[in-house]
C-alpha cells in the first residue's frame, strides 16, 4: 500500500499475473474437466464398475481435476508472483484432508458402534417420495 504510489506509474497490464493468461491452458482445463466428468457420468450411469470400486475411481477423477485446474485455470506455479499462493495452498490441503477425513472416520466408527442396525429401533428404512 505504502509504496504502491510509485509503482502505479508502471503499466499494470505488464504485470506477470496478467501476462500469464493463456488461452491454450484454459481450453485444456475446460476440455479435461468436461471430458473427465463426462466419463465419470457415463461410468456411473452405465454401472461399468462395481459400486465398491466406483467411488475411489470418481474420487480420483475429482482429485486429478482439482490438481489440473490449479495448474491450468488458477495458473499456480513457483514464479515470483505466484509462489506464496502455491505454498499457502499446499499448507491448506492437509487441513482439508484432516477436517473431512477425520470427521467421516469418527462418525463412521461412531455409527458402527452405537447405531448398529441390529439394535432395537434402528431398522428405519428410507422411504420413497410421496
Amino acid at each position: 500500500m505504502t509504496d504502491a504510489h510509485h509503482h502505479a506509474a508502471t503499466d499494470p497490464l505488464a504485470h506477470p499475473e496478467v501476462q500469464q493468461a493463456s488461452a491454450a491452458a484454459y481450453i485444456s482445463a475446460y476440455v479435461l474437466t468436461v471430458g473427465l466428468l463426462g466419463v465419470g457420468l457415463f461410468m456411473t450411469e452405465r454401472h461399468l464398475v462395481t459400486p465398491h470400486s466406483l467411488i475411489p475411481v470418481i474420487a480420483a477423477f475429482a482429485i486429478f481435476l482439482l490438481v489440473a485446474q490449479s495448474l491450468l485455470f488458477l495458473g499456480l506455479d513457483v514464479s515470483h508472483s505466484n509462489i506464496w499462493k502455491t505454498v499457502s495452498l499446499m499448507l491448506t490441503v492437509p487441513l482439508f484432508i484432516l477436517s473431512i477425513g477425520l470427521t467421516v472416520w469418527m462418525f463412521h466408527s461412531l455409527d458402527h458402534l452405537v447405531m448398529s442396525p441390529e439394535m432395537p429401533g434402528m431398522s428405519l428404512q428410507p422411504g420413497t417420495l410421496q
Partner: peptide, 16 residues
C-alpha cells in the same frame, strides 16, 4: 473447482 467436488461427491456418488 468447487463444482467439480459437488458434482462428483453429491451428484455422481448420489446414484451409486
Amino acid at each position: 473447482s468447487v463444482w467439480v467436488c459437488v458434482y462428483v461427491f453429491v451428484y455422481l456418488k448420489g446414484i451409486v
